[in-house]
Design a protein around this nucleic acid. Structure first.
Length: 498
RNA sequence: GCCGACGUAGCUCAGUAGGUUAGAGCACCAGAUUGUGGAUCUGGGGGUCCCCCGUUCGAGCCGGGGCGUCGGUACCA
């Protein structure tokens, strides 16, 4: 194909980078609304807001040592001429550890703070997985008591309910890493005298337990033993536990009983003589007691919750939504975990050398929003503003005055600023789902009246319109006195809204 | 990362064995309607057929490589 390609200008492609997205109108306002409800709960519990820097030194983020041109997998990092290696934060917890270590002399002890904002992860994105997303965290630093853990759990329930999730629609499952460690001792993969030994195997065990809901008991058993081959033929190395060892772990996961007391009694048996394990069970009992006393949300003790992350040291918990929704193709979909957290007593140690106890929760904002949106799929598109149309360009000031009057009365309103005739203006109003359009031409002006048009009503009537005459009858439009503009528009909005 | 499927207009897709100027529906724009959105009719704009290399007189179609999307799996401080 010897087409003579004249030099076409190379234009930039208008596209969001992979893994990122743009948020429009209602997505932004819905999120802001949800966050303000959630943070109001945090605030009511005495937590202070903290807005820390989005960029941290790689060193402060921890665990990642900057290496020549291969920055850090997982984070967005770059080398600054003066500052060395910097990176965008990948969560809100590591920055908290840094802020606390840096300002601990001036901060109250314990320090309770909440934080909201975007975090960035340089990972392969997938459906529902982005490289920038919002988190909403609350943490208590400097309180070793399980009362702090119980408070966070209860508060999470309150926050979910404030966000619009009914108590029956979510479930907070609580467990304790100490109990798990006790069980590992019994299974012989944790030696209290030599905690480093078998650490890798314990990691595999933990992640295997974490996959119970997806793989089922058989899948987990395979991962505890030799390994598991998935449907695509890929093989995952297992923890190489013997049958008896695996039974101990599986028994632990299955220890959930009718009620918390029953579960704890079983755990107490399973943990046997492990001091750590018994301590963990004791803590679970205390948390259950406290939550029951405070009438907190929907919380159960469930030994199958472990959380994949390695840094947790005590209570861990996860909130999941229990309702199912249908996606756009009619398939059943379940929302997994929308929030999680736990106690991590070692995070600040890196900076100060001291052991500072901390516990907290993180809500996956985007996931929770997606769930709320999916649940209320029937809800109508958010209404646009009232549009004051422009008939005579030289009377712009008068139109602006009308819009200002409406706004002063608390009604969202704008003057049409584009070009084009009446048809174009109403098309614009229609596209924005505006409830009402205001029209004042020279004719109306002379008679001291304006036309107001109920666009939503018009749309409903249009369904039954057959002839052009019906069409032009404009039943959704009424003429009112100019002086009654605010009152009449308000009344029309009320009719449309009711 | 690994395994598999797929990649044609903004969206959903068709495209006959490799053969002129690549199509449809929806959406968008304009006109019918000189002051009225959504119905109807007519017209219009819009494509690097994912990219590169190769085979061929000729490639949306065939071959190789790459990229991307989707599904499964792994990892996720």
């Amino acid at each position: 194909m010897a087409k003579n390609k004249a030099a076409k200008p190379r234009r930039p492609r208008a596209e969001t980078p992979r893994g990122f997205r743009d948020y429009f109108g209602a997505e932004v306002t819905n999120r802001a609304e949800m966050l303000s409800r959630v943070t109001a709960v945090y605030h009511a519990h005495g937590f202070d807001p903290l807005e820390s820097s989005a960029v941290e030194t790689v060193e402060a983020l921890g665990k990642f040592l900057p290496d020549v041109d291969r920055p850090n997998e997982g984070v967005f990092a770059w080398e600054d001429d003066d500052e060395g290696w910097l990176a965008l934060r990948y969560d809100l917890t590591a920055p908290l550890a840094r802020v606390y270590a840096q300002h601990r002399r001036d901060l109250p002890n314990p320090y309770r703070r909440y934080a909201v904002g975007p975090v960035w992860r340089n990972e392969k994105p997938g459906p529902g997985r982005f490289r920038q997303f919002y988190q909403c965290d609350a943490d208590t630093v400097g309180a070793a008591s399980v009362a702090a853990d119980a408070e966070i759990c209860g508060m999470l329930g309150e926050a979910l309910e404030a966000a619009g999730i009914a108590r029956a629609d979510y479930l907070i499952r609580v467990n304790n890493r100490k109990v798990l460690n006790g069980v590992m001792e019994v299974a012989g993969v944790l030696d209290p005298a030599d905690p480093e030994r078998d650490a890798a195997r314990r990691g595999i065990v933990m992640r295997a337990i974490d996959k119970l809901d997806r793989l089922g008991l058989d899948g987990v058993r395979a991962l505890l033993g030799a390994g598991r081959k998935d449907e695509s033929g890929d093989f995952t190395e297992g923890a190489q536990l013997g049958e008896a060892q695996a039974d101990v772990i599986l028994g632990f996961m299955d220890a959930r009983a009718e009620d918390g007391a029953g579960t704890c009694a079983r755990l107490r048996e399973l943990v046997g003589g492990s001091a750590t394990g018994l301590e963990g069970v004791q803590e679970l009992e205390t948390i259950a007691e406290m939550l029951a006393a405070s009438g907190a949300g929907h919380v159960v003790i469930d030994p199958s919750v472990v959380r994949g992350l390695g840094y947790y040291t005590g209570p861990v918990f996860e909130a999941e939504l229990t309702f199912e929704i249908l996606d756009e193709k009619g398939r059943k979909r379940q929302f997994g975990s929308v929030a999680g957290g736990g106690r991590y007593d070692d995070l600040v140690t890196r900076f100060t050398g001291e052991k500072v106890p901390a516990t907290g929760v993180s809500i996956g904002v985007d996931r929770l929003l997606a769930a709320l949106a999916a649940k209320g799929r029937a809800e109508a598109a958010p209404a646009g503003p009232v549009v004051v149309t422009v008939m005579d360009r030289d009377r712009m000031a008068e139109y602006q005055a009308m819009a200002a009057e409406l706004r002063a009365a608390g009604i969202r309103a704008e003057v049409f600023l584009g070009g084009g005739n009446m048809g174009k203006q109403l098309k614009y109003a229609d596209a924005r789902a505006c409830p009402v359009a205001v029209i004042e031409g020279g004719d109306e002006k002379a008679r001291g009246v304006v036309q107001i048009k109920d666009l939503a009503l018009g749309a409903r009537l249009a369904a039954n319109i057959e002839t052009r005459e019906d069409w032009q009858a404009q039943p959704a439009q009424m003429e009112i006195a100019r002086g009654d503009l605010v009152a009449e528009v308000r009344a029309m909005l009320a009719r449309a809204g009711g």
